[in-house]
């Protein structure tokens, strides 16, 4: 816990003193982060800095072992209380918590035996209990939002990487989550396919979707994010509006040297 425990009223997710270690390796420590409603928060930093781990702690895909993550005040993954060691919440409770959080993965993770529409509709039927017809209608709408209506009946193997990732985004938003987590959504894509995915994400942001995005796309972070969080060696160095990160002389030397590698390649 830190002195800064109060969180803004419009915070959807709050992390306080968040820590995670694997054996003796401390992957994250002392993270205090607020994800505000209808904002895009980008997580950037060198590889191995803990960006993805932090993202995966937010929906308990990784069980954090210090501090807390709260969504709307509700502790995620662990039972609230003073018990030590903490006990995980019931499987039912965890599923309920995860339903509020959509996730898009670097490797898409589409289910290969289902068509695009089936991928999107599956959880609507199995989790939300919609009829097959209702779920299909909703799936088509979600696919239309990512401009893939005409690919609804294709299997993932017949889609390009960019199209697959857009189906994955449709799958996440069809569940009407309160926030969508993106774990390096464009890192596995050929360069010419990156744009179509980023455009879809930009549209979502414009529609007011709360998003947390781990990315190496500095252009996206600079122009779309409301706030950019910079991580280094498992610690949160800064979480500020993009201008403060991407100006010519960022305050922190770690941010400066990180951005230097991009500047050298003329990316920013």
């Amino acid at each position: 816990m830190t002195e800064n425990s109060s969180s803004p009223a419009n915070a959807l997710i709050t992390a306080r003193g968040l820590g995670k270690h694997y054996g003796t390796f401390q992957a994250l420590s002392g993270i205090d982060l607020d994800i505000l409603k209808s904002e895009v928060t980008c997580l950037i930093g060198p590889s191995g800095s803990g960006k993805s781990t932090l993202l995966r702690c937010l929906n308990f895909l990784e069980a954090y072992d210090e501090g807390e993550v709260r969504i709307d005040g509700q502790l995620v993954g662990w039972q609230d209380g003073k018990a030590s060691p903490r006990k995980p919440v019931s499987a039912t409770k965890l599923r309920e918590q995860r339903r509020q959080v959509g996730m898009v993965f670097q490797q898409f993770n589409l289910w290969p035996h289902m068509t695009a529409a089936q991928n999107v509709a599956e959880a609507l039927v199995q989790v939300k209990g919609l009829s097959k017809a209702e779920a299909r209608d909703k799936a088509i709408l979600a696919l239309a939002r990512v401009n893939l209506r005409d690919k609804a009946d294709n299997h993932p193997s017949a889609l390009s990487g960019g199209q697959q990732q857009r189906v994955a985004i449709a799958r996440a938003i069809a569940m009407e989550p309160r926030v969508v987590l993106f774990d390096e959504p464009t890192s596995a894509l050929d360069p010419e396919l990156v744009g179509e995915v980023l455009n879809v994400m930009r549209d979502l942001a414009a529609d007011g979707m709360t998003m947390v995005v781990v990315t190496h796309e500095m252009g996206f972070a600079a122009h779309v994010a409301n706030r950019v969080a910079f991580l280094d060696h498992g610690k949160l160095v800064a979480c500020v509006p993009p201008d403060e990160i991407f100006r010519q002389d960022p305050a922190d030397p770690r941010i400066r040297s990180f951005l230097q590698t991009y500047r050298e390649r003329n990316v920013v």
């Binding site: 309920e96 993965f105 490797q107 959880a123 199995q126």
Partner: peptide, 18 residues
């Protein structure tokens, strides 16, 4: 079956049996 397949399903709130 790759872990990511399980993870994607868990993120949608599916039960383990589903």
């Amino acid at each position: 079956v790759p872990t990511g397949q399980f993870e994607a399903a868990r993120c949608c709130g599916m039960t383990e049996w589903t």
